[in-house]
Amino acid sequence: MSADLSHTLTALLRSPASIAASITEGRDLRSIARASLLALLVGTLVFGGVVGSHRGSLQMLYAALKLPWVSMLTLALSVPVLHGARAAFERPEPFAQSAALMLAASARTALVLLALAPALALALQVLRGYHAAVVLSALSYGLAGLAGVGLLRRGLGPAEGRLALLGFVLSAHLLTSAQVAWGLRPWLVRPSADVVLVRPPEGTFAEELARAGFSAAGIYDSTRSKAREAERRAHGEPR
């Protein structure tokens, strides 16, 4: 079993085309899924720990335990999307193959995250700033994600409309992953905030993105509240 595992892990990294071909033919799904699950758990666990190391102490453990769940839950929600969309693009495949493909693509991402983890850990120790940590972590995730996209693209085959299908599935996957991660925050933890396992539910990541965008432009919550107030007055609306 260990030889099989090592062979599949090597193939995941070195020859994504052969993994994609196996999945398309429905061959070795279990061994691919088994190796992918292991890679996913280890890769995200280590990367989560590294992200949490920015704050240190208990946050390392919390982030290491939560990141695998983000991947797992995101996959569980995006596999049906891939399955339904494939059918709509006239490339119906069994559900198991859609699950194996998404799992393998995420595992490849996780393995690259594992490779990037030491460099990120060092960078987080050298550059202590919160914003630098956010940018570096996001860049690492984006870079690793590209490796997974490559496998997913191959797994969708040479069918017509592949780019539209890939775009749709990736959009759904990114939105879901962002919302799941948002639901399980904090990850890096601002210096002023307390370390907790999960913060109470609050809005969506999209609101946070908008807020961060406004903040970057120098428009803060209080400024926006005043602007909204002025707008209401201009329209004669009650407060």
């Binding site: 799904l29 279990r30 699950l37 996959l75 559900f95 198991a96 194996a100």
Partner: peptide, 16 residues
């Protein structure tokens, strides 16, 4: 136990 939404369909599928 850990990933049943992903594992169950794969485990229940038949090798071609």
């Amino acid at each position: 136990l850990l990933a049943w939404p992903l594992w169950a369909p794969i485990a229940l599928s038949r090798e071609p």
